[in-house]
């Protein structure tokens, strides 16, 4: 078998207990949610915590709720399957529901959590490998080594943000609620990322992500998610595109947003999307050419690196195609954009 390194597992019942355990153990401790990212990584000795603090038994971290002012509050431990199937999420945050429905395969969506997905480690074909494999080429900067095999001579790790939900949450302007030894804080998900593949998120020591809050979306909100992958199931994204179109009563675009992921260390918001699409009426020829213009913007701005498996040139070529298709899908009120 592919053995796990030794550790101790604790399953506290309350958040404060969990934080206390984390704080006491310091950097030797890690949180485990569904374990679908962490366990394979530990089997590859990419993480070797001495203590694992499971959040599985903390009831308050589960469930999807609609707050009085209309925001959706999703407990970090809510499974991806539950989020995907939630009528609230489907109705008020369709891009998120679609993204969750395309993560991995059915079993992994039942096990994996939304919190774990937000906090997914970055991925790279030179990194997500066994100890033996990584050792054979002298390791790399992200773990145990000092070089990068993607950008030879590079000084930064460019492992890819590969979580499907992150771009969707960004288009939705989601906030992350975190709880740590210093108390709780809230951060806009946009501000959560850093451009470093080694650790691409600003999660404080001993901090736990408790809730993901999606602010109220307007009545004319449309959203969709597009995912490029080789197979129709199981695979991580080779490219992920989340879009948002908020339209007024006359179907004119009031607000638009496009975020692309699986490029480099953090998801990328395509610039000038709002300006290009604002004011166009869905279905009009002007809207269609604005969509094509956005696709071209995305092509210029997004450069997938050969960090994850698959042909990087092809992934780049698909950026405008998936941006275009996902925008059209959102305009039609459907999606996701996925080949099966």
């Amino acid at each position: 078998m592919l053995r796990l390194p030794k550790f101790e597992l604790r399953s506290p019942r309350t958040l404060s207990e969990a934080i206390q355990l984390l704080e006491e153990a310091g950097p030797a401790a890690m949180v485990i949610a569904g374990g679908t990212d962490l366990v394979p990584n530990m089997k590859h000795e990419l993480a070797t915590p001495e203590l694992l603090v499971s959040l599985a038994h903390i009831e308050e971290l589960r469930g999807v709720r609609r707050e009085p002012e209309g925001a959706l509050a999703i407990g970090a431990m809510t499974s991806l399957a539950e989020v995907a199937a939630s009528e609230l999420v489907q109705r008020f945050a369709p891009a998120l529901a679609q993204a969750c429905s395309l993560v991995a395969g059915p079993q992994l969506r039942a096990m994996g959590t939304l919190g774990g997905n937000v906090l997914l480690d970055t991925r790279c074909q030179w990194f997500n490998q066994s100890y033996f494999w990584r050792q054979a080429l002298g390791f790399c900067m992200k773990k145990d080594g000092s070089v990068c095999h993607v950008v030879q001579g590079g000084k930064n790790c460019v492992a890819a943000a590969s979580n499907d939900t992150a771009p969707a949450l960004m288009t939705l302007g989601a906030r992350l609620e975190l709880e740590g030894p210093e108390g709780s804080r809230t951060t806009a998900i946009d501000d959560f990322w850093v451009a470093d593949g080694i650790v691409n998120k600003k999660l404080g020591a001993s901090e736990i992500l408790t809730r993901i809050v999606v602010p109220p979306t307007p009545r004319g909100h449309r959203g969709a998610y597009g995912k490029l992958r080789d197979r129709g199931s199981i695979d991580f994204p080779l490219l992920g595109v989340a879009v948002r179109l908020d339209v007024d009563e006359t179907e004119r675009v009031a607000h638009a947003d496009v975020v692309v992921t699986a490029l480099a260390a953090q998801p990328k918001r395509v610039a000038k999307v709002g300006d290009t699409l604002r004011g166009q009426t869905l279905g009009s020829p002007e809207f269609e050419s604005a969509v094509l213009a956005v696709a071209e913007l995305a092509r210029k701005q997004c450069r997938p690196l050969p960090n994850i498996p698959g042909d990087a040139d092809y992934r780049r070529e698909m950026v405008p195609v998936y941006v275009k298709r996902t925008l059209f899908a959102a305009a039609r009120g459907d999606g996701p954009v996925h080949h099966v």
Binding site: L9, S11, I32, G35, T36, V39, P40, L52, S54, A56, A81, P106, Q107, L108, A110, M111
Partner: peptide
Amino acid sequence: GRPWLACLTLAKSVE
């Protein structure tokens, strides 16, 4: 009742 991957499940977590 839900399909689950036993290889990624820590045994003690099914308590």
